[in-house]
Design a protein around this nucleic acid. Structure first.
Lengths: 196, 196
DNA sequence: TCCATCAGGATACGAACGTATCAACCTCAT
DNA sequence: ATGAGGTTGATACGTTCGTATCCTGATGGA
């Protein structure tokens, strides 16, 4: 039951999984609760997926794909119209829960990421493609023509990992949005400031 | 059932929770499984804690406390005998799964961190004390007398968040240990290199 | 028209969950 | 020695879980 292009009904059900996982946790995403949230009967959930595990895998794959598409679209809408710093910032802000969409997505992804430590089928979704974001950030830094003392790849690694961590802190209300913005601005300045 | 100093039996049970959560996930930490892992009967688990939820909260608090103590001890064992870079590196490496102890702890913490998005009792454990690690790293950077263009607090924020993220990548085998070491070395060099 | 296939309703089943209950056992101060 | 309080074994209760089963309509090509 590998779904590449889900039917409308499958999509409804998958989105119900997302909402429940984001608001009440992946544990509460039982077949019966998913059905209620999707506005269908439990039998329908049973019918359209091979089983609960497959449903969860499909839901992760679809979320992952949607996130990538949305990020790519949003960044592409800026390109050729802005400077490298704006692009770089936009790419990194895709990792932050700055609106309901990204907050929901991040909460669901967090639940899945933890479960993928146990479930290899989920882990494979995360490992499927290499490190497109790190590579993109590396390219953006290099394209900005930073000082020669900057190693774009190493900067990208810490930036992506760090902004992800800051996003989680934001989710847990361990940091304020202003705090994250200050830290991000500082490092963008540092990396992109005047060349030698 | 707030346990500050657990009895030997409570500790046995709590450690069973840690092992199960690390190896099979927090969902598998049922009362019956915990009892088996701890080598006691399920009734004993029932008796020594107010309920499952309290047991989970106590287990998190104890893990959190143990981690802080171990980190403090390990770093203190280096102080006055090493240069700032060694101390800074040691502090950050407490976040990485470099041995079984830290790997287990990180896996358990990850499960709890995710669940704390839903469970306020767990979230309060994480939020209880401010940001001691960020503060310590800030102090270590400042004490190293970095270049005046360095903002120690902002560097500490991204370092702590970033190394945490790199540690998770390590856990998921998304990065190699050498890769993480390279990124960490680069940024330590960058921050601590020759003063103006 | 007829029947094969798809879609879904209604219900049940066995397993596992957290917890409650009741009796039995220890261990000391009295 | 004895009874009270702390501890544990054995067992059961009610719930919820994922899934299976059986049946009813709807749809659509022959």
């Amino acid at each position: 039951m590998v779904v590449d292009e889900p039917t409308a009904r499958q999509r409804r059900i998958v989105e119900a999984v997302w909402r429940i996982a984001a608001e009440r946790g992946l544990d509460m995403a039982t077949v019966r609760e998913i059905a209620v949230e999707a506005g269908v009967s439990a039998r329908v959930v049973q019918y359209h997926f091979k089983g609960k595990h497959d449903l969860l895998v499909v839901a992760l794959r679809l979320l992952h794909r949607d996130n990538e598409r949305r990020a790519r679209d949003r960044i592409a809408a800026l390109r050729d119209a802005s400077n490298p710093r704006v692009l770089l910032r936009a790419a990194l802000e895709e990792l932050l829960p700055l609106d309901d969409q990204r907050r929901t997505s991040l909460r669901v992804m967090t639940a899945y990421y933890t479960r993928s430590l146990i479930d290899p089928a989920l882990a494979s979704v995360f490992l499927h493609d290499g490190s497109p974001l790190e590579n993109m950030v590396t390219a953006l830094i290099s394209a900005a023509g930073p000082r020669h003392s900057i190693d774009a790849a190493r900067e990208a690694d810490l930036l992506v990992a760090g902004v992800t961590g800051l996003g989680l802190d934001l989710l847990h209300q361990r940091r304020t949005r202003a705090d994250v913005r200050r830290t991000l601005d500082y490092h963008l300045d540092r990396i992109l400031q005047a060349q030698p």
